[in-house]
Amino acid sequence: MRNKPQFIPNRGELKRKAVNYKTGMEIKLDEATLKKMEQLVENSSAEFLSETVASLKGLREALGRAATEPSARKEVLDHIREEAFQIKGMGGVFGYPLLTEFSKSLHDFLKELEDLDELQQEIVSIHVDTLYVVVSHKIKGSGGPLEAQLRASLKAAVDKAKPGTKPAQ
């Protein structure tokens, strides 16, 4: 390491090995290859949905544990955070942008938390229920009236937990 930048030319070994004018894939992705790639993703979509259902079921069980065992809350929090992260990354890949959007909302909500009090458990629960609706109805779009309704109910739930918000009487 040095103060004055040193520029190191790329050895270009990988390019020499793989790039040519005879065999392989076109640099510019052609329509047929793109379709094949998308088909591969589509083929795994059912597996993704079934794994997501299992994950959501696990989250419901974890929430039940958090409600009855306060000492387990930290562990439950880590588990929910991890599952939310996974669904956030996968949903949109498999054509479920709402799963990505709502699990991002859940992940963001949990980001700074160190415990999971009753109100926070309720908000997680609303997220899990909303994710279930998306999975069970296989909602692939993101702009219809049902989607808007789900989005609004989640936002209202998250807003409830914001600092300075008075609990409902």
């Binding site: 390491m1 040193q6 990988l14 992705l29």
Partner: peptide, 21 residues
Amino acid sequence: ADGMYRRLVSVIARPRDFVSV
């Protein structure tokens, strides 16, 4: 899929020089 392919093309066919500072 398109985004993935473009990153692959970039790292294989458009190698960048390195900087050490």
